[in-house]
Write a protein that binds this DNA or RNA. Structure first.
Lengths: 342, 342
DNA sequence: CTGAAAGCGCTTACAG
DNA sequence: CTGAAAGCGCTTACAG
């Protein structure tokens, strides 16, 4: 069933069918209705490649996510929520979604850019990808509209979306302060990553504002994984002025710190309160359950789609100055690791 | 840069360019080389929609995954590994990947099928979707090749891929038996789901083979989530002949059972050994770390792609009898919850 | 409001 | 081995 067949059966030209189905104003109400009815009845659906070819637009967005991180297990559950939010928001806006492959070492530099051209993609959404990806850098440098969540690249038509890492960290410290803690230490992520640096900045700002000192040895860098949190926890617990609370910039590290506390014979939260960041699944499964700064995956995904649509609507002329990053609020989820009786 | 431009610059016809770039035998080695070089030099990439239109095939596979489960948080991390394996395997086979939207309540019955037709998709891969989805049922009933991981539908050109749930459960029971346990209880998933039923069958088979009785009350049904495991654990621990080991058909339930043990003043693994299923991230984060039957996401993804390619190669004639399900082995990951000293 | 015609960028019989 | 031509299924000026 193609448009010619449908036109024949409707007794009109293909042009009229096309107009009716695309809701053009010129077609009369009566014929439009008749054609639409017949179309659904016959199960007709227009051939998208043909439409793309003639309209020179595909209504399709490319999606890239990093499989390097994934192989390491970093941020896994987080990614899926993002993916899902992006998919929903995009399909509500009537865009199709194509998954782009992370290029291997033998792929050409311009792999992403080429994929965009070949498929007539209108824009790309990038999920949490490291900054040292050549293909991606080249894509960002092009005129292809790109919205990135937790990405570090910039370009002429690029928008960055991210959680409010600093404010989230501040909220965590404030929460601990409100519980009476005055000796609050932190475990950071790798500080060359923007989210890690921003969370540390938030921690420092909150401590300064609350008049808390940050003694020597209260800031330990980890790598977002469990073992680094455990090691950092051990170090923090051996500082002369032992902290009574730890804010870790990632949940796995926070859980590692809880293990270190247990090994030192300290009870959480009685002897040591712990707050994490991200709200991964495990945060609700460990005991005591982990208080954490939750990222709003849904909002992040929606913000990325909104930002991308902004770029698309603005057209190739605009957006030549680097766009302001879109910042999405976080939410503190209070569980047993920071307050007793849970 | 399109094929006409490239042809003009190469001094040949578009037909020859097309043949050279598509590796047709008829073109001379010299011209082929010349054209290829020029193509990469000029950054030419063929327009896929145009190719799809004329070739009547898109080299594109559709991907469907369930967002219902996802909203509930079930199997989250598992899905992402699958997604990633499928993407890799598919792109190695030179297929493109399009994400299909889970239809909302107001979408037409044939939404998936229509999407397949509109985009000329050659087949679909379905990830862990519940059996009561109309759109999906209709897709399976069509002649569209479908490979499903942990799905329950069948159709003329459908293949199911799944872990060897029964053998995995058997391995878990054998492991506990080898540690000296003779009173082994189980917490099942919702038994209308095939994986849950298969895991229970494996448990029963192993118990029978090892000569273990399954006393009244040793089989409790849960829903794969934490709270149900905790509740089931409490019930199992109050059975007259208290079990010394529990095999739970999912990791969250296993962790819940560990909580129940702790609440009852029992130490894991000394007083109660626990084994789960899936190997979610949290399994390695809880304390003691959870022994579990790991599913091989990568192998599952690859098997799904291989199965789909089998259907595609067989052509529309074949595959009319329901294909045998592809079974992927599991792997027992031994951690602290089943053996001391870890 | 409607139709005939051109054309989007390719591939592939067909002819040489 | 190569080219001229037709055609894949649509949309959209253009003419009426």
């Amino acid at each position: 069933m193609n448009i010619r067949e449908l036109a024949r059966r409707s007794g009109v030209s293909t042009a009229t069918v096309s107009r009716a189905l695309n809701d053009r104003a010129e077609v009369s109400e009566a014929t439009r209705e008749r054609i639409r009815r017949l179309a659904t009845e016959l199960g007709y659906a227009p051939n998208e490649p043909a439409r793309t070819l003639v309209r020179r637009r595909s209504d399709t967005i490319g999606l890239i996510w990093d499989s390097g991180q994934e192989a390491q297990g970093l941020h896994n559950p987080f990614l899926l929520g993002l993916l899902s939010a992006v998919r929903t928001a995009l399909s509500e806006a009537d865009y199709h979604l194509m998954l782009l492959t992370t290029p291997g070492p033998d792929d050409p530099e311009g792999a992403h850019l080429q994929a965009v051209r070949r498929h007539n993609l209108e824009g790309v959404i990038v999920l949490t990808t490291p900054p040292d990806d050549h293909c991606l850098r080249q894509l960002a440098a092009s005129t292809v509209p790109c919205a990135g969540i937790d990405t570090a690249f910039t370009g002429p038509r690029t928008v960055r979306v991210s959680s409010d890492n600093a404010a989230g960290a501040e909220a965590a410290v404030e929460h601990l302060y409100a519980l009476g803690h005055r000796r609050i230490a932190t475990i950071t992520g790798p500080l060359h990553l923007p989210p890690a640096a921003e969370r540390l900045a938030g921690y420092r700002r909150a401590c300064a504002r609350l008049g808390l000192g940050v003694p020597e040895g209260y800031v330990v860098e980890g790598d977002f994984f469990l073992a680094s949190g455990e090691a950092a926890g051990r170090r923090l617990l051996s500082v002369a002025e032992r902290p009574t609370a730890i804010f870790a910039a990632g949940d796995q590290m926070a859980i590692g710190a809880m293990h270190a506390a247990a090994d030192a014979g300290l009870a959480v939260p009685r002897d040591l309160a712990v707050v994490g960041f991200d709200d991964i699944d495990a945060a609700a499964l460990v005991r005591p359950a982990l208080t954490t700064v939750a990222q709003d995956q849904r909002a992040l995904g929606e913000a990325a789609v909104a930002a991308l649509r902004g770029l698309l609507d603005a057209g190739p002329g605009k957006g030549l100055e680097p766009a302001q990053p879109r910042i999405v609020p976080t939410r503190l989820v209070i569980r047993g690791s920071s307050r007793s009786g849970a």
